[in-house]
Amino acid sequence: MSSTAEANSSGPVLAGAGIGLRSAHHQALLRERPRVGWIEVHTENYFHDGGPHLRELDRAREDYPLSLHGVGMGLGSSEPLDRDHIARVKRAIDRFRPSLVSEHACWTCHDGEHFNDLLPLPYTDEAATHLARRIAQVQDLLGRQILIENLSCYLSFRSSRLTEWEFLGAVVERAGCGLLLDVNNAYVNSVNVGLDAVAFINGLPTAAVGEIHLAGHARQIVNGREILLDDHGSQVPEPVWDLYELALRRHGPIPTLIEWDTHLPELSVLVGEANRAQRYLEAAHALAA
């Protein structure tokens, strides 16, 4: 990819704490211009040819660095890569010049049917190789590195032979991609499938961690067993803040995003969460200095 094209399709280096921007908050963001480091949107919501939401994001992008976070590429699926979908992601990159582009370590479709959910992969060498090969193809097609996010899970496979962090480390090494560390997902998995969240965070390759996500979850009792649902529908719980502090100590002051997708509060609440993350980041900066 030419350096000019690369420069044209990349935004500034992200720093500090940002907020996930949903369309319900577009007008408030443009009106109030809150002091947050950056914003992130779901890429697929900006695939269209026109409309108010695209124009609003154009305006928001003038004032805020942007990250594009995709949910539909299904990089771990056994179906062929969806070239049309990738082309739409490329078009969004060219229009909005994001600083980061990310997807998930998951599969999403089978036999032409899309389940519109982030489905888990077994932690096997076969799956790591398959996922890494497709990530590398997509990075070539997009002309840039992408970050891959760890998934929240409601089950674990007997056929898994690697730990989750070994699996992601293998993917990073083979694909040359980055990692988006979702600390809430690590905590959710510690309850749902017995993941050692501390070992997970400590076991990830620091050089690959390019972004952190924080979010809320919901507790449910299913046949007497506690399960956490990754619904992004509440404030970041205290145990997740504790894990986040550990992640910053381990990996340094990584740009951090507050995700809130359901039961949306006022924008000021989201900004308040970002401000809290910013204080943790500043403390981590001070420690690193």
């Binding site: 699926s77 056994s78 599969w107 089978h110 036999d111 049917e113 389940f115 489905l119 992969l121 077994p122 096997t124 076969e126 799956a127 398959h130 089950l155 674990s156 496979f157 007997r158 056929s159 499938v193 017995g194 299913v222 046949n223 067993r225 399960i227």
Partner: peptide
């Protein structure tokens, strides 16, 4: 099972036949 086999069984489970997948899933209290 191979990755495609796992995903095929999982898809069948999502479409309404969870028994196809149950053997490869750790229970862990549920």
């Amino acid at each position: 099972p191979s990755l495609p086999e796992i995903q095929s069984s999982f898809a069948a489970a999502l479409r309404g036949s969870p028994a196809s997948m149950a053997e490869d899933i750790n229970a862990d209290g549920l």
